[in-house]
């Protein structure tokens, strides 16, 4: 399970780095979101492998009708962390995409070069 997740994280991470290095701002944004997903996936690993609750001296936890009776549990807290992080990154994603739309309306193109060309500081020596 850990190996499988590790491979997933590696793949997602490499795709995200590829996208971030792209020239279009849309690509960069998508790369950033994927980077977040890679981070979330690797936190999922922190839950560890499922353990028998009884071996640890705990009771068998009865789930609802959907979950059924389960004797194997993973630590649920990392999943709670991921859930919070996903919600936050979702909000940031919405904001960033809106920003892209507005920028596109203003400038008709979205290129990394646009970020560099603007606002070069003036120096005192140029007086």
């Amino acid at each position: 399970m850990t190996l499988f997740l590790a491979i997933c994280v590696t793949v997602v991470l490499s795709v995200s780095v590829y996208l971030i290095l792209g020239r279009e701002l849309k690509e960069v944004a998508m790369g950033l979101f994927l980077l977040g997903h890679a981070a979330h996936l690797s936190i999922l690993m922190m839950s560890g492998t499922p353990v028998l609750m009884q071996e640890q001296g705990g009771a068998i936890i009865k789930g609802g009708p959907v979950l059924g009776v389960s004797s194997h549990m993973v630590d649920p807290l990392p999943q709670a962390l991921i859930l919070t992080a996903i919600v936050i990154s979702f909000a940031v994603m919405a904001f960033l995409l809106t920003l892209l739309v507005v920028m596109h309306r203003r400038a008709d193109r979205l290129d990394v070069n646009d970020l560099a060309s603007e606002g070069r500081p003036q120096l005192l020596t140029e007086l």
Binding site: V28, A29, L32, L35, G36, A39, H40, S42, I43, M45, M46, G48, L77, P78, L81, I82, A85, I88, S89, V92, F95, L96, L99
Partner: peptide, 20 residues
């Protein structure tokens, strides 16, 4: 936003690793 998004990603990853 871009820079801080990278920062936040590393923060959440770091926090998760600390927990693990």
């Amino acid at each position: 936003v871009m820079l801080n998004l990278i920062g936040s990603t590393f923060f959440v990853l770091g926090a998760g690793l600390v927990y693990g």
